[in-house]
């Protein structure tokens, strides 16, 4: 049972980790929680579903469908993320820190209601795309979907890590997060780096949305809220602004939730409570998160 819950938790946690990265990338540079990120994730699911229902996609082999849906969902979510930044946050760049936060909540409410009113207020079934089978591992089993979720997530996180550590743009991104003015002095166009952070965060959110849709089999206009808050918790747990921390936090939250649901009698009824208990604990005991640094307020 333990191994089984670990596998379930790993799949769940991979999705949280992908979304948590979107929060952390933006926070790292702008010191702002992008509360609209959960809605980028939700829209990503609808983008993915839209891509899958295109007639020229639905006739293709499963692997091609998956790849196209992934790319389209990532692309559309990336553009959405960057667009939100341009419209709702950029004009508030020199306002107080509270202003973009409120703007983010506004965008979130707006997008949810947009889908509620003009797309659907019902749960929509989401295709599994790939054939379902199970791999036996002793007393536990891992499904083809879980393998897919974990594999795609880790692949994307690997790409991200390479991008941030090794490429010149990635280094510019870290420099911008470290000291924005000095980055400008070095000739780095930091406004573009900010757009890039939203693009990447959005793309990862879109990928997470496709995986989440396939894994759970349905999507809805309000699906972003809970998942978003859990992913945000994951980012805080890992140390918000820290990329490795977001991945670690996501996996930990996923595993904790699975173990809690599996071991505590009736735990699946209130599985959501575990992440939030963690959030409260982290804020009380180690507010900078597992891998975060204790920083003094910037002046």
């Amino acid at each position: 049972m333990f191994v089984q819950q670990l596998i379930n938790g790993l799949a769940l946690g991979s999705i949280y980790a992908l979304i948590a990265l979107g929060y952390t990338l933006v926070y790292g540079i702008l010191l702002m929680v992008n509360f609209a990120h959960s809605e980028i994730f939700m829209l990503g699911a609808f983008f993915a579903l839209g891509a899958l229902s295109l007639s020229w996609v639905s006739g293709l082999p499963a692997f091609m469908q998956l790849l196209l849906a992934l790319l389209l969902a990532m692309f559309a979510s990336a553009v959405t993320g960057a667009l939100i930044e341009r419209v709702a946050y950029k004009p508030l760049r020199h306002a107080s820190r509270l202003a973009p936060l409120i703007s983010a909540i506004g965008v979130s409410i707006f997008l949810q209601n947009l889908v509620f009113l003009f797309v659907t207020n019902q749960s929509v079934p989401f295709p599994r795309i790939v054939p379902l089978w199970h791999l036996e591992l002793g007393n536990s089993q891992i499904s083809s979907l879980q393998i897919l979720v974990i594999a795609v997530s880790f692949l994307l996180m690997g790409f991200l890590r390479f991008f941030i550590q090794k490429t010149s743009l990635g280094k510019a991104m870290r420099a911008t997060a470290g000291d924005r003015m000095m980055a400008e002095f070095s000739g780095i166009p930091t406004e573009r780096i900010i757009s890039l952070a939203f693009l990447i965060g959005g793309a990862l959110g879109g990928a997470a949305a496709l995986l989440n849709g396939m894994y759970y089999g349905s999507i809805k206009y309000n699906m972003g809220f809970l998942v978003g808050i859990k992913a945000f918790t994951a980012a805080v747990l890992g140390g918000i602004g820290n990329v490795t921390g977001a991945v670690l936090g996501g996996l930990l939250i996923g595993i904790l939730e699975s173990l809690g649901a599996g071991y505590i009698p009736g735990g699946s009824e209130w599985k959501d409570i575990f992440s939030f208990a963690v959030l409260i604990l982290v804020l009380l005991v180690r507010p900078e998160g597992l891998l975060g640094e204790r920083v003094s307020e910037k002046v």
Binding site: S168, K171, A175, A183, I188
Partner: peptide, 29 residues
């Protein structure tokens, strides 16, 4: 950043090294 690209390099007060980046990465930037 465009002023920097025109050929004005600013070494600010307090040095402002990118502390989480390596020396080599600082130079590359």
């Amino acid at each position: 950043h465009k002023i920097a690209r025109l050929g004005i390099a600013h070494v600010p007060e307090g040095r402002r090294i990118f502390s989480r980046l390596t020396v080599l990465e600082n130079l590359e930037l």
